[in-house]
Simulated assay, not measured.
Amino acid sequence: MKFLSLGEAMVELSPAEGGLFRRGFAGDTLNTAWYMQALMGAGVGYATVLGHDAMSDAMAAFIGAAGIDTSRIRRDDSRSVGLYMISLADGERSFTYWRGQSAARLLADDPDWLGQVLAGVEMIYVSGITLAILEPARRAVLLDALQTAREAGARVAFDPNLRPRLWSSTTEMCAAITEAAACCDIALPSFDDEAEHFGDISLQATAERYAKGGAAEVMVKNGGGAMLTWYRGAMAPVNPGAPVTPVDTTGAGDSFNGGYLSARLAGASLEEAARKGHAVAAQVVRHPGALMPMDLLKG
């Protein structure tokens, strides 16, 4: 397996005509796996924990039908899947969540299973949400498993995806993100979030902080504006080109990650990968919902 995304998938309710909502399945790590699969065509897997109920079955079937490997999904009898609803205003989104029953919260409850899941993977992808849904002791289990996988040759890519509402405090969130940064090879922070919660005054400050934390490669996203790449001390700005008018920004950063990481796995330079990520995200934000149909995505 070339790429494994690890985290929480949820039922998504997105706005439709007449005040109705459209049901889908999404979640930051699943979104990135979706776009990796669309761009790579094979070698992409998703790991999570689902229930044994009808909605969990439907989600697993949906993921598998997209061509994403589901063999590393575990089931639990006591829980189901979480749900979120999107509200839109001028293309910008806000979310309401129901995730207390999410089986993905048990992701690191079985260290042996987790170690087996991460074995033999070229690149492992996790996010700050993956960390946030776990109890602190289980978060430590996950980080230990990621370090073991790195020692065995895997590369770990990490999007901090800062979501304060998932944490007991901003202090806990920032501490956990910093700890996770030490376990990653590629960091994919978004500057606006990092500036708000870490106080970064520039894209360079964000890149330097993650590099100092342990990441050899940092891709600082900037909401469609000029980006910054950092690789082993070499820093370079990237101008993404003309802006686009979004319909729905849900999944923008996740799709960027799919474009960027698929390009890096294919041997592209950091600048080429950054432009690829932007090109993918520019298509996705002009489509409602987190997951743009694969057959509509122009690689």
Rank of each mutant, 00 (worst) to 15 (best):
residue 181 A to L: 00
residue 198 F to W: 08
residue 161 N to L: 09
residue 157 A to W: 00
residue 157 A to Q: 02
residue 159 D to Q: 04
residue 182 A to P: 14
residue 192 D to H: 11
residue 185 D to K: 01
residue 162 L to S: 11
residue 184 C to S: 06
residue 156 V to G: 02
residue 163 R to L: 06
residue 160 P to S: 05
residue 178 T to F: 12
residue 173 M to E: 08
residue 185 D to W: 02
residue 196 E to A: 11
residue 172 E to S: 15
residue 191 F to W: 14
residue 183 C to Q: 06
residue 193 D to R: 00
residue 188 L to R: 02
residue 165 R to H: 09
residue 202 S to R: 11
residue 202 S to D: 15
residue 175 A to F: 11
residue 199 G to C: 10
residue 188 L to K: 04
residue 172 E to G: 14
residue 169 S to D: 14
residue 184 C to R: 00
residue 159 D to V: 03
residue 169 S to C: 14
residue 164 P to F: 03
residue 171 T to V: 10
residue 195 A to V: 04
residue 162 L to P: 13
residue 187 A to S: 12
residue 196 E to W: 01
residue 164 P to L: 03
residue 202 S to M: 09
residue 201 I to S: 12
residue 177 I to A: 04
residue 161 N to Q: 15
residue 157 A to I: 01
residue 176 A to G: 06
residue 187 A to N: 05
residue 193 D to W: 00
residue 189 P to I: 00
residue 175 A to D: 15
residue 191 F to L: 13
residue 161 N to A: 10
residue 197 H to A: 11
residue 177 I to G: 02
residue 195 A to W: 10
residue 181 A to S: 09
residue 166 L to D: 13
residue 172 E to W: 14
residue 172 E to I: 07
residue 166 L to V: 05
residue 185 D to R: 03
residue 203 L to S: 03
residue 187 A to V: 03
residue 185 D to Q: 04
residue 187 A to D: 03
residue 187 A to T: 04
residue 168 S to Q: 14
residue 198 F to D: 08
residue 179 E to M: 11
residue 182 A to E: 07
residue 190 S to T: 13
residue 168 S to P: 07
residue 161 N to C: 05
residue 194 E to Q: 07
residue 156 V to M: 01
residue 157 A to P: 07
residue 196 E to G: 07
residue 174 C to H: 06
residue 167 W to F: 08
residue 171 T to I: 02
residue 169 S to K: 10
residue 158 F to P: 05
residue 194 E to M: 03
residue 163 R to V: 06
residue 202 S to T: 11
residue 164 P to N: 04
residue 189 P to C: 04
residue 166 L to Y: 13
residue 182 A to N: 10
residue 172 E to D: 15
residue 157 A to K: 01
residue 200 D to W: 06
residue 163 R to P: 11
residue 198 F to T: 12
residue 198 F to E: 14
residue 180 A to G: 10
residue 156 V to E: 01
residue 162 L to T: 08
residue 200 D to N: 15
residue 197 H to S: 11
residue 186 I to W: 01
residue 196 E to I: 08
residue 180 A to I: 01
residue 188 L to D: 08
residue 202 S to N: 13
residue 175 A to I: 08
residue 199 G to I: 09
